[in-house]
Design a protein around this nucleic acid. Structure first.
Length: 341
DNA sequence: AACACGCACAACCGCGAGAAT
DNA sequence: TATTCTCGCGGTTGTGCGTGT
């Protein structure tokens, strides 16, 4: 195919755009639309190839582009989406209003990737670097924390990816629905936070799985996201307490939602090893109002390798002492570090 | 003051997919 | 159906700027 590379075309300018060129391009597109990019430069009086014009427009001149520093919320969204989608920058950009794929890509490569690496997390796989894990000479406490953080994130992503995949198979639009749902919930949570407590972190990542899950069954469990209200979490303190953490209420859905919940929990804990002994005779998590917390507590005490994802479950239960002990101990030490990296 | 170095970001490049012919 | 064209995407490069020596 004799594809012509516009960069090779004689007489065309390359390199940085001048303000005059920007003005010409902007004025032309505002008046006529871009139409065919190939023919645009000549019509607009630019000594550039169409491709160069298109890039300049989409990455810089477009009026709906937001420039400037990325917010913490955007950071988290990018990391989360990258874990799910990989280097599909355009797809990631699709969920970050007013940000371009090029900008996100640059930001990832210059900031986020390094940040994750510093945390000991492989920015490609989002897994803990084994080299760090295997190191016997490092700070064992920090390594332990990193391990838990990475494990939780891995489990969370597995669950989310699975749920999204399943949703997608039911409806091609489910992925967008899930993310839009998350965005809407986040917006509501932000509004809630702004009107009441001020919080350092707007997004309770612990709800991500629930959101994805809710997206699968939006009509059946309307009340599900009343659980774990972020407004109850005060991140402003240096040693935050998780007051009233457990508000997840399975009343009325117990039994009906058991299988779905099991799927989520199995995804959270793919090996499901700890649950088998801790939960019930079925070798699985028994989802009953009241014994959920016991399951977690047993799980935590049996295997510290599995608690991170669970400790973010912030379940309502009938054992407040254990709840707060667990939440304060693990959530504060590990999850918060992840959130505040 | 001059140079080296690293960082951030805009721009370039090549490829593939899909539309048009 | 085959070929050509256009566009969009993701990886890479180039350049300007700030900082340290």
């Amino acid at each position: 195919m004799g594809k012509s590379q516009c960069w090779d075309e004689a007489g065309l300018k390359r390199g940085p755009w001048t303000p005059e060129e920007d003005q010409k391009l902007l004025a032309y597109i505002q008046q006529h639309g871009h139409g065919s990019w190939r023919s645009l430069p000549q019509k607009a009086g630019l000594q550039r190839c169409g491709k160069s014009c298109r890039l300049r427009w989409t990455n810089y001149l477009r009026p709906d582009i937001k420039r400037g520093n990325f917010s913490l919320q955007e950071d988290q969204t990018i990391i989360q989406l990258h874990a799910l989608l990989g280097n599909r920058w355009s797809a990631i950009a699709g969920h970050l209003p007013k940000r371009t794929d090029n900008e996100i890509k640059n930001y990832w490569n210059t900031h986020l990737k390094k940040r994750l690496s510093k945390m000991g997390i492989d920015p490609v796989t989002h897994k803990l670097k084994t080299a760090i894990l295997s190191s016997a000479t490092g700070d064992s406490k920090n390594l332990s924390n990193l391990s838990h953080v990475a494990q939780w994130e891995k489990a969370r992503l597995q669950a989310e990816a699975r749920l999204v995949k399943e949703a997608k198979s039911r409806n091609q639009n489910e992925l967008d629905y899930s993310l839009e749902t998350q965005a809407q919930i986040l917006k509501e949570l932000n509004n809630n936070n702004n009107s009441g407590h001020s919080t350092k972190f707007a997004r309770p990542r612990c709800l991500d799985i629930l959101r994805a899950w809710q997206s699968l069954l939006p009509n059946q469990y309307d009340g599900i996201l009343s659980c774990g209200g972020i407004s109850n979490i005060n991140f402003l303190n240096s040693t935050p307490t998780l007051t009233n953490m457990g508000t997840m209420d399975f009343n009325g859905v117990t039994g009906q939602c058991g299988s779905e919940l099991d799927e989520v929990f199995e995804a959270l804990n793919p090996n499901n090893a700890g649950f088998e002994e801790a939960a019930d005779d079925h070798g699985d998590v028994d989802i009953d109002d009241g014994d959920v917390s016991d399951t977690w507590i047993t799980q935590i005490s049996n295997s510290t390798e599995n608690y991170v994802g669970i400790s973010k479950g912030i379940w309502e239960n009938n054992d407040d002492h254990h709840d707060h002990e667990i939440n304060n101990k693990y959530f504060n030490n590990d999850v918060l570090k992840f959130l505040s990296f």
